[in-house]
């Protein structure tokens, strides 16, 4: 199979996700802009209340502005690095047998949704990041713009890791019905492990070290902490390494689950 055919096909999937999402304008606007904007405003207000209540100028060694910048970026970056839309879709397709229409095509199911996820995230993230960018520029909250490209590179690299986990969970649908609950549980755990809930440096040192070694922290804490000056380049590189190991682990697991799952598949529903 030639690389050109592979590239053209995946570019097609990438564009398909963009076209499909832009089809529903209200949903797109709510998903990409309104929901994360409201969440970030709530979190920023919460941090202001915490600082006011604590009557302190710093918490964990950082001033209020650092927390506001973190809350603002974290909400939008977390949106960019979560994948429940396609995970739910994959689970449903396997559950209901609508995957049949895709399995008889000369393509790979893994690449089909990976390319779509990248397409969907490119368009939603590109659009939604306008909000924090405008807020940061107008309020001078701490952000090192020179670090922005590297931080975003890690964010998009992390998507491969997130997708590998999604693929494993979706493959479980070959064996169990209704595995959607696993997605919800995983997302709750990610909420804490990524640092979306609060910056990981507020955790006890030992726990923080363990969390930083895991790839999950590269979903929010590492890129946002790096962008807002809480952590340096060494943490970013470590992020790339742990994400790479995570991708390898979940890709191998996903391939095994898929192979076993296809053997067990009965194609119900079609």
């Amino acid at each position: 199979m030639s690389f050109t055919a592979f590239y053209k096909r995946n570019l097609g999937f990438y564009k398909l996700a963009i076209a499909s999402n832009l089809e529903y304008r209200l949903n797109f606007f709510m998903d990409a802009m309104l929901q994360p904007s409201i969440t970030s405003i709530v979190e920023m207000v919460l941090w202001m209340a915490i600082f006011k209540g604590a009557q302190a100028t710093t918490i964990g060694g950082f001033e209020q502005n650092y927390y506001l910048a973190y809350a603002l970026w974290a909400t939008f970056i977390a949106r960019a690095t979560v994948n429940w839309t396609y995970e739910f879709k994959m689970i449903e397709e396997i559950d209901q047998g609508t995957i049949n229409g895709l399995l008889v095509r000369p393509m790979n199911y893994y690449e089909y949704y990976l390319s779509q996820l990248l397409g969907y995230k490119s368009i939603t993230t590109g659009f939604s990041l306008l909000f924090p960018v405008v807020i940061i520029l107008s309020t001078q909250l701490p952000t090192d713009w020179s670090r922005f490209p590297a931080a975003m590179l890690l964010v998009f690299y992390y998507l491969f890791f997130v997708y590998s986990i999604s693929f494993c969970i979706a493959s479980l649908a070959f064996f169990f019905n209704k595995v959607n609950s696993l997605t919800v549980t995983k997302n709750l755990a990610m909420w804490l492990l990524t640092g979306e809930l609060f910056p990981l440096d507020l955790m006890p040192e030992a726990i923080r070290k363990v969390f930083l070694l895991m790839p999950f922290s590269s979903g929010v804490y590492v890129p946002v902490g790096f962008l807002t000056g809480r952590i340096g380049w060494d943490a970013l590189w470590q992020g790339f390494i742990s994400v790479t190991l995570g991708i390898l682990f979940f890709s191998v697991l996903g391939a095994l689950l898929w192979r076993k799952g296809m053997k067990a598949y009965v194609g119900t529903g079609a």
Binding site: A5, R9, F13, R105
Partner: peptide
Amino acid sequence: DITPLDSYALLAKIYD
């Protein structure tokens, strides 16, 4: 969500 023409263009890529 897309038109048949767009679907066929994508199928042409899938089937090379």
